[in-house]
């Protein structure tokens, strides 16, 4: 005889687990590392307890598959523990996927922002390179003009540098 055992997704994230319970409209109270639900069995309230890094659901084992006969366990449509956990798992996984998608969206936005900043910096660098080149070119001409005895007048006309070099010959 063989057996197939399935477990629920480990409920690692407290915030997402609480959101899942909220989505299922389950009331709960938080007591330290315990999330105490309104579900009740022979031993009292069923609860999630943080154990080895995950929230494990603690309950009377007889409440696992069957409808508990003597207490008001039949809360909403989740009459058995299994049904309840499957429903919580479904919501938890949905919230988890949404959270991942949101984080991915933010990551993509940050990448886009980083790329925008990089392009802006590249544009600035190219612009500074151009300005520096023009200045260097101008200085080289001025230097040579001085060496050849020209007097130099510099003007700026429509974003252009205008150098008027004059000298007198006899």
């Amino acid at each position: 005889m063989s057996a197939v055992v399935k477990t629920t997704t480990p409920f690692i994230n407290k915030e997402m687990l609480l959101q899942a319970l909220d989505c299922l409209d389950f009331k709960y109270t938080i007591k330290g590392n315990e999330i105490v639900t309104e579900r009740v069995d022979y031993y009292g309230n069923q609860k999630f307890v943080l154990t080895n890094g995950r929230y494990q659901f603690l309950h009377d084992s007889s409440a696992n598959r069957t409808v508990y006969p003597w207490r008001n366990l039949n809360i909403k449509e989740f009459k058995t523990v299994s049904n309840f956990l499957v429903a919580v798992e479904k919501e938890y996984n949905r919230i988890y996927a949404e959270k991942l998608a949101e984080l991915e969206r933010i990551r993509q936005e940050q990448l886009a922002e980083q790329e925008r900043i990089r392009l802006e910096e590249e544009m600035k660098r190219i612009e500074q390179e151009r300005i520096a080149y023009v200045e260097k070119q101008k200085q080289a001409i001025i230097q040579k003009a001085k060496e050849q005895g020209y007097s130099i007048q510099e003007k700026k006309v429509n974003n252009k540098v205008k150098l008027v070099l004059t000298r007198n010959t006899y």
Binding site: Y150, V161, R167, T169
Partner: peptide, 17 residues
């Protein structure tokens, strides 16, 4: 006495006339 003049225009891209 004669005056010699050279007018140089450098545009924003470094092109010279």
């Amino acid at each position: 006495m004669a005056e010699q003049t050279i007018t140089i225009e450098i545009d924003e891209n470094g092109k010279i006339k």
